[in-house]
Computed example of a mutant assay.
Amino acid sequence: MKATSDQIEVGFFGWVARVARVHQFGQHERVDKKEVIYQYPRRPLLGLNMLEWKLVRHSLLHHLQSS
């Protein structure tokens, strides 16, 4: 996490970022030193359903129209 007086940034870095990316997009990854590779299923860390996407879109458009 990185924060300033007017913004905040949250993310994954290093090894944690790689693990998050593999799970987010369902990629393959080596699971041991014997070079066994496993295809992970796609498991989004943050998922929005259609109603949530519509609410975000509506909120954003409302904000832009108000500016």
Results as ranks from 00 to 15, higher is better:
M1G: 07
M1N: 06
M1Y: 05
K2Q: 07
K2N: 11
A3E: 10
A3Y: 12
A3V: 13
T4A: 14
T4Y: 14
T4G: 15
T4M: 13
T4R: 12
T4F: 14
S5G: 06
D6M: 08
D6K: 12
Q7L: 06
I8S: 13
I8L: 14
I8P: 03
I8H: 07
I8N: 12
E9G: 05
V10W: 12
G11M: 06
F12V: 10
F12L: 11
F12P: 05
F13T: 13
G14P: 04
G14Q: 06
W15N: 07
W15I: 03
V16S: 03
V16R: 05
A17D: 08
A17T: 01
R18K: 14
R18H: 07
V19D: 01
A20P: 00
A20V: 11
A20M: 09
R21Y: 01
R21W: 00
R21H: 03
R21V: 00
R21N: 01
V22F: 00
V22Y: 00
H23P: 00
Q24N: 09
Q24G: 02
F25P: 00
F25Q: 02
F25S: 01
G26T: 01
G26Q: 00
G26F: 02
Q27H: 05
H28K: 04
H28M: 04
E29V: 02
E29S: 05
R30Y: 03
V31K: 02
D32H: 01
D32E: 03
D32L: 01
K33V: 02
K33W: 04
K34R: 04
K34N: 06
E35P: 00
E35N: 03
I37A: 03
I37T: 08
Y38N: 04
Q39I: 07
Q39D: 15
Q39E: 14
Q39P: 02
Q39Y: 12
Q39R: 15
P41E: 13
P41Q: 10
R42L: 11
R43I: 14
R43M: 15
R43P: 00
R43G: 06
P44L: 11
P44R: 15
L45A: 10
L45N: 10
L45Q: 13
G47L: 14
L48Y: 15
N49G: 13
N49L: 10
N49M: 07
N49D: 15
N49T: 12
M50P: 06
M50I: 14
M50N: 13
M50H: 13
L51N: 09
E52C: 07
E52G: 10
E52D: 11
E52W: 05
W53L: 15
K54G: 10
K54I: 06
L55W: 03
R57Q: 07
H58R: 08
H58S: 11
S59M: 09
L60Q: 12
L60H: 10
L61F: 06
L61G: 02
H62I: 03
H62E: 07
H62L: 09
H62S: 09
H63D: 12
L64Y: 11
Q65E: 14
Q65I: 09
S66D: 09
S66E: 14
S66Y: 11
S67R: 09
S67A: 03
S67K: 05
S67E: 14
